[in-house]
């Protein structure tokens, strides 16, 4: 997934925000099903390894959410059977399925988000809105790996002095807390040196800071951006016009088959496939280039 991850962060972020908005705003069975399937596909493309483990996590979660809903909710008019005197209804079961599709779909897309929106992209976007906070975040992200390394060094040094002995739970907790306390002093002392280095390079000189980044908004980003806005607009507009109304309780409503609804389904489907299609396009271009040489 090099091509999709190479897009301008603003484009990628808009894509995910719109996607999650639709996921959480329009609990429509068709849209939810699409989001779930395409989410799984995109995740499979993005992170090829660990797929088996993921199935082991998402499938039980899906079942858990789907099955527990009818146990807690007894709305609906079509009882399937009775449990402890409470009806388990078809509507509640289907609503549970839809919820499960939503939850798992959102989780899958979040996984894709975490894969694509690395911390530097996030910081860039965040920094455009709140530069200072983004600087603090950037520093925290820079400190963390150094702290982990130092914590390891401290615990080994303590161990080699015989002060980190014992393998019981209490000992382990106590040892780790000791290391953490030592880390507080170490990190803050070093942080003051970092502050000196910031001041030495003009931080706080009273000028308004600029926000520099390596990202550039290129024509391809514009094209992707336009496409995603257009495609996302369709289901949102259809929903606003009431063409995607669907209710579970008290009884299931009919699935819409109006032209507007079909357009919305198709557009949303394309929208969800945008990352995969973008990848395919890049792969094609690459192959053509190679052939020309």
């Amino acid at each position: 997934m090099k091509a999709f991850a190479g897009l301008h962060p603003a484009v990628t972020m808009t894509y995910f925000v719109l996607l999650l908005t639709v996921c959480m705003f329009l609990p429509h069975p068709v849209l939810q099903g699409q989001a779930l399937v395409c989410g799984a596909l995109t995740c499979a493309l993005l992170c090829r390894r660990g797929a088996a483990r993921d199935v082991g996590f998402y499938l039980p979660l899906f079942l858990l959410v789907a099955v527990t809903n009818p146990l807690f909710s007894h709305n609906g008019v079509t009882p399937l059977f009775f449990l402890n005197g409470n009806p388990v209804t078809l509507e509640a079961l289907l609503y549970g399925l839809s919820l499960a599709a939503m939850v798992v779909g959102v989780l899958l897309w979040c996984k894709a988000y975490n894969e694509v929106m690395t911390s530097d992209k996030f910081l860039y976007l965040f920094g455009a809105v709140t530069p200072k906070l983004s600087l603090v975040l950037s520093m925290a992200l820079r400190f963390l790996p150094a702290y982990r390394r130092q914590a390891r060094r401290v615990s080994r040094a303590q161990k080699a002095m015989g002060l980190y002995a014992g393998s019981s739970m209490v000992c382990r907790v106590k040892n780790r807390l000791r290391v953490l306390a030592a880390m507080v002093t170490w990190s803050l002392e070093n942080a003051m040196e970092t502050a000196a280095s910031m001041k030495a390079r003009g931080y706080g000189s009273g000028k308004r800071r600029t926000h520099f980044s390596l990202f550039r908004f290129r024509p391809a980003d514009g094209a992707f951006f336009a496409a995603l806005l257009l495609l996302a607009a369709a289901p949102l507009a259809a929903a606003a016009a009431g063409a995607l109304n669907f209710t579970y309780y008290p009884r299931l409503s009919q699935l819409q088959t109006t032209p507007a609804a079909w357009v919305a389904y198709a557009a949303y489907g394309l929208f969800l496939l945008l990352p995969a299609m973008w990848e395919a396009k890049e792969a094609l271009v690459w192959r053509c280039c190679k052939r020309k040489i």
Binding site: S119, D120, L135, S138, M139, L141, R142, A146, N190, A191, E193, T194, A196, S197, M198, R201, G202, Y203, G204, S205, K207, R208, R209, T210, H211, F212, S213, L214
Partner: peptide, 28 residues
């Protein structure tokens, strides 16, 4: 300063280079 580690402010090399000029408010 002395300690190479504690003088670095940001998490990326390019950003560290740009940090001083950002503070001066120079155009991107």
């Amino acid at each position: 300063q002395q300690n190479p580690d504690s003088q670095i402010v940001t998490d990326k090399v390019w950003h560290e280079l740009a940090f001083g000029l950002e503070n001066l408010g120079l155009p991107v």
